[in-house]
Amino acid sequence: MKPFTTLLWLDSRKFTGIGLMLLVLGVAWFFVARQIFVWNGANPGSALAVVATTLLMASGVSVALLIVLALDFAREYRAGRWALLLGSPQPAWLYLAAKAVFGGAVLTLFNGAMWFIQSFWLAQAGVGLPFSLWASLWLYQLGGLALVVPALFLGFWVAAYIPGRATLLALVVGLLGMGQVLEWSLRLFGDQFYKLLPAWKLPAPNVAQSPGVRMQWEAFPGLPSEGFVILLFLSLLFFVLASRLWQEVEA
């Protein structure tokens, strides 16, 4: 447990600034969301604006976090810090798991805060929101992170085998390559395996309706499972490949 917590601590120290920025963003959005209802009144337009902006922010932060992780890999390599990590006798999966858990925790905390802010102000306006809508976003964000973290490691190590060293361009090319693998997997799953996958849906939401606001939410049908299963499958594949390369790395 000690090496794992050390790696989590290392990431938390490295990304303290980003954490503070997210905190400021959350606090600012809390007050801005309130002002939207104050200025426009409790009507469907205001509720829709708050929900759409919150979803957009949560998705944007998810993508931004992945970009930050990618840049961090490149920066660490250029600074020669991999020698510190590669020299330690800890297994590769520990680094991968710590990075994924750290990213997942940041996303979960941020999404939780966003969910709270949105629900709080919508409740003031008498509007309910299906939780499963939010949960699906969160699960897909985590799925994307679970895929991208090993893919980043993999892209990084593959790039390290190219004379001239890993560059941001090599990482981008590596990620595009992963995109191709994702497309092939989608076809494979779609053509061959999708029918065999078990049905997996979140409970149907209870959609609150407020006569005063006269807002109708469409019943959310549940979470489509195939994309999430593909993400987890590819994550496992990349995880194994990246762990193997770690053992024979050239840095």
Binding site: T6, R13, R81, L84, G87, P89
Partner: peptide, 30 residues
């Protein structure tokens, strides 16, 4: 690699690290 202690020629520690932080890092991983 657990038997090898390698000092790189790169100036490669984290800028925020104090000697206390470095101890925590090394205790955790080595």
């Amino acid at each position: 690699r657990g038997q090898i202690a390698y000092l790189s020629d790169a100036d490669n520690l984290y800028a925020w690290m104090t000697p206390g932080d470095a101890e925590r890092f090394m205790r955790g991983l080595y």
